[in-house]
Every structure is written in C-alpha cells, then in structure tokens.
C-alpha cells in the first residue's frame, strides 16, 4: 500500500500546533539548552534554525485543484514557488519570474493572474486552479486537446501558461476574433513562436462552444 505523501510544511489537523503551544515548547528548549550536553544536541538537530524558521512563517489555508491545504509559509513565498516547491505542482512554469512572460499563469477564484507576482500569503482561502487541475481523470480539457490537435507548442515550456490564459480569454469574452485573441493573449510569450497555432487552438475551442 502506498504511503500517503505528506509535506514537511503541511500542518494537518492531527499535528497542528498553535503558535502559543510552540512558544511554550520553545521556552522548554531554552531551559533545556542551559545544560551543555543538550546544547550540543540542539545544535546537531539545527533546532535554532528550525525555531527561527517557524517564527518567521505565517499560516495559510488554500485550495489547489480542489484539494485544501493548511500550510505554514514564509511571507515572501510567491504563489508560484508555493505551487512548485512546496506542493510539488511543477506544471506551472517559472519563466522570467518578473511578470514579463506569462508562463506562471494560474486561475485564482476563476481569474487568471501571474503567480510569480502574487504573494501566497495574500491568497488566504483562495481557490487556485493550475494546469494539473484541468483534466477530468484521463479526459483532457478541451483546450489541452485543441493545443495538441493544432500543434500549439514546440518546446512546451510556455504551454501551461498559454492554456490557462486561453481558457480565461474565452471565459472573459475576449476571443471574438483573431485580433482580439492576440491582444488578450499578449501576456503569454512563446519563444518558439507557436503563436499562429495557439490562436487556432483558442479559436477552435471558442467555436466549439463547450462549457469550459
């Protein structure tokens, strides 16, 4: 039986500690640390670093692709780094990390945003959808199918962002012409230059009229 993978940073209801509980315990550490032998053990286990890390984190409740997570994160963690580094959802790509390429586009509460410029702590109780959350079992999302059919990529690095943006582009009502699609997809750069086929894919999904 496969063991349930748990994240080091994840606080599950069973092992959740309130900050107050922690401080009580850390007070105990300090008392114990007065004994030299304990000090050595503390140093070996890097308790001081762990304590510092814990005190610099903030709690975050967030739902990603339908799954709720209760986490403790550093305030400087971007939503992109949270997804990739802590939740192991590496489908969302880090391109420029400065809001210039769109590879990190995800949906937050149904709206497309750049996860690299979004602080995760400011997405408290948000519902996030990433490229991993689009398919239903083995059935791909219509936009994923259209990208494959229309050859809407070459290297594929920008593709998760393009697909998330393309779905939003239609939902927002900005896919009424090739020109409009180009304008409202301009935040997603494709270095391979698959733009023509990306517009084809979005046009096909729009004209297919399926609910997205």
């Amino acid at each position: 039986m496969a063991s349930k993978k748990t994240n080091e940073n994840e606080v599950t209801p069973e092992n959740s500690n309130s900050r107050r509980d922690f401080i009580k315990k850390s007070g105990l550490f300090t008392a114990l640390a007065l004994t030299p032998s304990t000090l050595v053990v503390a140093s070996e286990n890097k308790w001081d670093e762990k304590i510092a890390e814990y005190l610099e984190t903030v709690p975050l409740s967030i739902e990603v692709n339908g799954k709720k997570h209760n986490l403790n994160i550093e305030p400087r963690t971007t939503l992109l780094d949270l997804l990739r580094e802590q939740l192991q959802l590496t489908g969302t790509k880090k391109g420029c990390d400065h809001g210039q390429c769109g590879a990190c586009t995800v949906h937050v509460n149904g709206t497309r945003i750049l996860s690299c410029l979004s602080l995760a702590t400011m997405q408290q109780n948000a519902q996030v959808t990433t490229i991993e959350g689009l398919s239903k079992g083995k059935k791909l999302h219509p936009m994923q199918e259209a990208f494959i059919k229309n050859d809407g990529f070459q290297c594929g690095y920008c593709t998760p962002g393009q697909i998330m943006s393309g779905i939003a582009c239609i939902k927002e009502g900005h896919a009424n012409s090739r020109e409009e699609i180009k304008e409202y997809m301009s935040g997603n750069i494709c270095r391979c230059g698959a733009y023509h086929n990306i517009v084809d894919a979005i046009t096909e999904v729009k004209e297919g009229g399926k609910e997205l």
């Binding site: 945003i113 301009s186 935040g187 997603n188």
Partner: peptide
Amino acid sequence: GASQQIRHM
C-alpha cells in the same frame, strides 16, 4: 497597459 493577467491584479 500591461497584460490581462496583470490588469486583473
């Protein structure tokens, strides 16, 4: 200005 993703934020 910017892109639609940035305008949403």
